[in-house]
Simulated assay, not measured.
Amino acid sequence: MTEPPSRNPEKASAKTQQKRPELRVRPTAPILPPSNIQGSALMVVISIMAFLACLTLGGVSMVRSTAASWESQISREITIQIKPDDNLDMEKALTQARDLALTFVGTKSGQIVDEAATARLLEPWLGPGLDLKDLPVPRLVIITIDESNPPDFDSMRALLKESIPQATLDDHRTWVDRLVSMAHTTVMIGTGILLLVFTAMVLTVVFATRGALSGNRHVVEVLHFVGAESSFVATEFQKHFLKISLKGSAIGSALAALFFATAGFWQSRTLATPETDQATALFGTFSVGVLGYAGIFATMIVIALLTTFTARLTVMRTIYEIDTLRSDPTRTDGIGS
């Protein structure tokens, strides 16, 4: 006798499912190709913009740090200058000027700049082996003061003039004002350059986004016509430009960080040369420090976000124009033609 067919529905359903072919969902392709000539060119432009922005930021940071260091050093000291005279005992006058200055509240210490140190100060202009006795070179007394409680400079100046007519007091206020003005001017110039770089980058992204939309306008119109929301299309473009901007800004920021690291290393290895000494005196150290590198990283993130936000706004604006053309029956240059 033949065995009756199985009446178990679960077994029958399992056999049927085993015979059916598996349905595979085809992965959706992105609206924009992952890489093309326009994307590569945009990445290069963003790299250059990021490099210039980070270079400007690091330069402004270096100048501000150097100006702050100069201002701090100048604010901590005042200088008494005594001009030579035939009837003046220079060494006695230097000691007397130092002692008079130290009697004022707010002074900490005084140092007489000896002849050897004075000759070293004049060596870059007058050459080595200078004999100060042959030249009417003024002598200096450096007084260290309390920045939080400075002495009465007017009274000190009057007392020195009365006791030693050849003595003059320089409190460096003019230099401090010039340094503060220079620092503010440098910050304004750097801010202006950063704004120009960001503006150029935004315009470049706008043109690149519109170019990508023009090349894929039929795809965007079809997607939008069948019901795709503007946010969906904008998100696809946003992802595409986010990847490009992250790569470009990372390359430019890394090159800027490498530049500052290389310059700092070169400066540390050539400190004894006159060229490096002059550069250090003028610009300070080329090392931007931890805050400088953090600023470079922050600039990279800002550039990536700004690029992405610009691309999204451009796409939304373009889709709005498409909707306007479709809803206007009098226009024949859009999708309704």
Rank of each mutant, 00 (worst) to 15 (best):
R26G: 02
S75T: 14
V180T: 13
V105M: 11
P274W: 08
D99P: 03
E229F: 01
S6E: 11
T324N: 08
L88G: 14
A119H: 09
D154Q: 13
I319W: 03
D131H: 10
L140I: 09
P274V: 03
P84C: 06
V113W: 02
T273G: 13
I303D: 08
R26M: 02
V141A: 07
A256R: 11
A101P: 08
I164G: 12
A93T: 06
I319Q: 05
E321P: 03
A68M: 01
T95P: 03
G248P: 10
H218A: 13
Q18W: 01
Q267H: 03
S327I: 00
I322H: 12
Y320L: 06
P128V: 02
L135P: 05
A53F: 02
Q238T: 08
I143P: 08
I164Q: 09
Q267M: 12
K83M: 10
N216I: 01
S13G: 10
E147K: 14
I164P: 13
L52M: 07
R24E: 01
L121H: 04
R178P: 02
V206A: 04
P138R: 08
T168F: 00
R173P: 03
V288D: 11
I82K: 09
T103S: 15
D170W: 00
I80D: 14
I31G: 01
G336H: 11
G59L: 09
N8L: 02
Q166T: 09
A304K: 09
T308E: 10
K247N: 12
L305A: 13
Q166K: 10
V187Q: 15
R7T: 11
N87E: 15
E236Q: 15
V141N: 12
D89N: 15
A183D: 15
V290D: 12
T310D: 08
K161G: 13
E162Q: 14
G227A: 07
Q38M: 04
L223G: 15
A279N: 13
